[in-house]
Amino acid sequence: MAVPRHVACVMDGNGRWATQRSLPRTAGHEAAEAAVMDVIEAARSSGVTWLSLYAFSTENWRRPAAEVDILMRLVRRAIRKHAPVLHARGVRCRFLGMTDPRIPAPLVRDITDLTTLTSDNRRMTLTVAFDHGGRRDIVEAARSLIRSAMPPDQVTEASFAQHLPYSDTPDVDLVIRTSGEQRISNFMLWQVAYAEWVFPQVLWPDFRAAHFWECLDAYRRRQRRFGEVRQSTTMTGEGLR
């Protein structure tokens, strides 16, 4: 039974979930917290060792200021609430992105604290893409590569990837995008190159462990070929790395 090593979730549908219930959009974000915790636990118990969550994109800053503000508060509250549990369960937490000065200072400090606290855990690595943009990461990597003055003919995919943030992160095997939307939305562009995608119809606040297992099942039934013609039996894509 092949379990994907690295699963990523694009947590879509919070706004629609709230609208369907005639609630303010922020209620959807609030309800998302339970889904996040459920998925983290489901991933950990099914043996997934890398989990990435797309929490906030660089484009999300364009949302109404009040919504962004509440979102920041919710994230901070969730971090403070769940930090001890995440640490106790051996989850290493990291945050991808996090460059915008608009992120409130207390939130930055809590995020730094959570990262420090869990830095030595190894059971599962949870990467939260916060203020993240896939293209920006690639541009940053290019900058860093140029600064390192590497001769052009020595630049390979592997050496380029060394300059991406958290370069130890393996390629994503499975991306789950909820609410039926089928877009990449600038998410971890480099890492999702060979990922399998599933698009469950359920909105993120309703997404639970059972849905997560269904997605893992769908992944298992697929045959991953990585561009080759003959049938490949590998399901984890580890051979590629």
Partner: peptide, 18 residues
Amino acid sequence: AGKVAALARLLTPASDAS
């Protein structure tokens, strides 16, 4: 010490005096 301090800060009630 860094980890203990981080945990202590995360466990103390948040203040919004920014």
